Amino acid sequence: MDRDLHAARDLVAGLAERAGRLQLDRRGTLRVGAPKAHVNDVVSDVDIASEQLIVDAIRAAWPDDAVQAEEGHGRDGTSGWTWIVDPLDGTRNYISRTGPWSVCIALRQQDQLRMAVVHEPVAGETFSAIDGGGAFLNGGPLVAPAGVPLEKALVGVSFQPNPATKERAARVVRELLPVVGDIRRLPAALNLVYQAAGRLDGGLALDTFLWDIAAGALIAREAGIVLGGHGPDFSTELTIGAAPSLWPELSERVRAAA
């Protein structure tokens, strides 16, 4: 069974923006819970409230769909469609007030990503994409530029802050920093959509979860960013993105170190 992906995109973009407003309104009164997988894996009551808002609305609109959600509000479905939800990608930035974060929602039919939304609350920017239908920023078309030489490239770096992944990230940064223009550490979804918007020339993400990268990956791909890792597509272990002219050299450098 197919569905109207444009209508779905518009509905969940509104949900993401509502969650973003909640996050801005409650930032001064948030409560941080116990760490999850490791000491740097933090969660707040705002993460949980944001996910509840999004998942409740998705269940009401599409009761037969499955949901994969970071903070535990997932469920099985029978329709063959799955919603992938990260209600607050970049919780550490949000809590510490040291950088951007986003609300991420993607829709997958079987194993194919079909629609995605990434909303950045502070900037009021909503990135979106429809499979085969292009990428958008606040409703306007989004096409990544061709790229720059490696020595001028601004490269985003994203990774889970557990001890083993930090060791991997350190190897990659040691390899890249002398040969690129500069690097930026960002949450994975914003890393990918900033490539789509031409704010970054390339980027990589190490040891993420599907909800961290699914929405951003579809938006980047639809804007013309080349994606891959140790295989021909994005993966939770390693995702490399770059403008087409930069891809061969950047991906070679990252794969050698990661």
Rank of each mutant, 00 (worst) to 15 (best):
G74F: 04
D41H: 06
A60G: 03
D56H: 13
V67L: 07
I54A: 03
S79P: 06
G72E: 12
E70N: 07
E71D: 09
S79F: 06
V55Q: 02
V43W: 00
D45Q: 06
G80F: 10
S79A: 09
A57T: 09
A66R: 04
H73Y: 09
A66C: 05
L53W: 03
E71S: 10
E71M: 11
Q52D: 15
D41A: 11
I48N: 00
D45T: 01
D56S: 13
W62R: 07
E71C: 09
A69D: 08
Q52G: 15
V55H: 04
S50D: 06
L53N: 02
A57C: 12
D56Q: 15
G80W: 10
S44R: 00
A69C: 12
G72R: 06
V42T: 08
D76N: 09
A66D: 01
A69L: 10
D41N: 12
V67Q: 07
Q68E: 14
T78P: 06
E51I: 02
V67W: 05
G80L: 14
P63R: 06
W81C: 03
Q52C: 08
E51K: 02
V43S: 02
W81H: 12
I54N: 05
Q52E: 14
H73C: 09
Q68D: 08
V67T: 06
A61W: 12
V42W: 00
V67M: 07
I48L: 14
S50K: 03
A49I: 04
R59K: 14
A57G: 08
V42C: 00
V46R: 00
D41S: 11
G77F: 05
A61F: 02
G77V: 07
T78Y: 08
D65N: 13
G72Y: 08
Q52T: 10
D41V: 01
S44I: 01
D56G: 05
Q52A: 14
R59A: 15
E70Y: 12
A49M: 13
L53D: 04
D41G: 05
A60D: 10
R75E: 13
V43P: 01
L53A: 06
W62V: 09
W81Y: 14
A69V: 10
D56T: 15
V55A: 09
I54W: 02
G77T: 11
D76P: 04
R75Y: 04
V55I: 06
A49T: 03
V46T: 15
D45P: 02
D56F: 01
R75I: 07
V43R: 01
G74R: 03
G74L: 04
A49R: 13
G77A: 14
V46L: 03
R59W: 00
G77L: 09
A60R: 13
D64A: 11
G77S: 15
A61D: 06
A61Y: 01
E51Q: 09
D56E: 15
E71Y: 07
G74K: 00
V55R: 03
H73D: 15
D65W: 06
L53G: 04
D65E: 15
A61S: 14
V55C: 13
S50P: 07
E71H: 12
T78F: 08
E70V: 06
G72W: 10
